[in-house]
Design a protein around this nucleic acid. Structure first.
Lengths: 136, 136
DNA sequence: CTACTTGCAAAAGGTTTGCAACCGG
DNA sequence: CCGGTTGCAAACCTTTTGCAAGTAG
């Protein structure tokens, strides 16, 4: 139950009450071997596939948003009218396969920007992301 | 009327019948001094602002999609659940202002990638795009 | 107890679709 | 004329919201 306690602490740290639903989602999302790319729809299926504990869609939306604000998830840029999230929050980039519409991580050091633009006055750069479109 | 003929030819070239609506939209989109970033909603307001010729929303959606397929428009990546298009189809990058949700072009040579990843087997890179998120 | 959360269902916002009327070639 | 195109309204899909009931501290 160390993992569970770790998650509870993580939630508390961000001012999120460790409710049953949040813990369940956090376990599902953050205890994984590799990066997970998902839409709310996909996550909902994953969470509710076993006939047991159900988490309502609204709560999944709320929670994903809360996790994103807390910095535990990252929203991915796509051209689709659906939100994609990534459990890998480190700055990294993606391949977007136009044929299969799949996203794949690109190892961070495989892309190098050696020139960044000056932001408009009064603004500063928060992050940047490269999407590389691929096809057959 | 040279401009108009040019547009009619452009449409025909792509197998698009030069209808009144398509010509109107093409004139509005392609005869501009500078790049235009828009959503369908914005374009619809622009097109229908003078009480005269109205183009229905569905037709605007159809036409924007057709123009995109024909390569006359480019879809822009954002995290919002709304499609953004750009009349600048050359490879270029964007600032995405998280406060105002505005997109701005970044001059092409202000960003330089000096390392691109190898695409997965059997795929090749079609294009890449950098989005730089800025905030106050 | 109190404030924060959840879940449901309804509403909203953007996009797509079915189909009859219309029009370009 | 014929087949592509338009316009309308309804349908769709994802996301948000209001609110009563539930729960963590």
């Amino acid at each position: 139950m160390n993992q569970k306690n770790g998650i509870i602490n993580k939630l508390r740290t961000s001012g999120l009450r460790p409710t049953k639903q949040r813990i369940l989602l956090a376990q599902n999302l953050f205890i994984r071997n590799k990066t997970f790319h998902f839409t709310v729809e996909k996550l909902e299926k994953e969470i509710n596939k076993n006939g047991n504990e159900k988490v309502s869609l609204a709560t999944i939306y709320n929670t994903v948003e809360a996790f994103t604000k807390a910095g535990y998830l990252k929203e991915i840029l796509t051209s689709k009218n659906k939100s994609y999230y990534d459990t890998n929050i480190k700055s990294h980039h993606h391949f977007y396969d136009e044929t299969t519409k799949e996203l794949t991580d690109i190892n961070y050091n495989q892309v190098k920007l050696n020139k960044l633009p000056t932001p408009p006055k009064g603004k500063k750069i928060k992050s940047f992301e490269v999407v590389i479109r691929i096809q057959k």
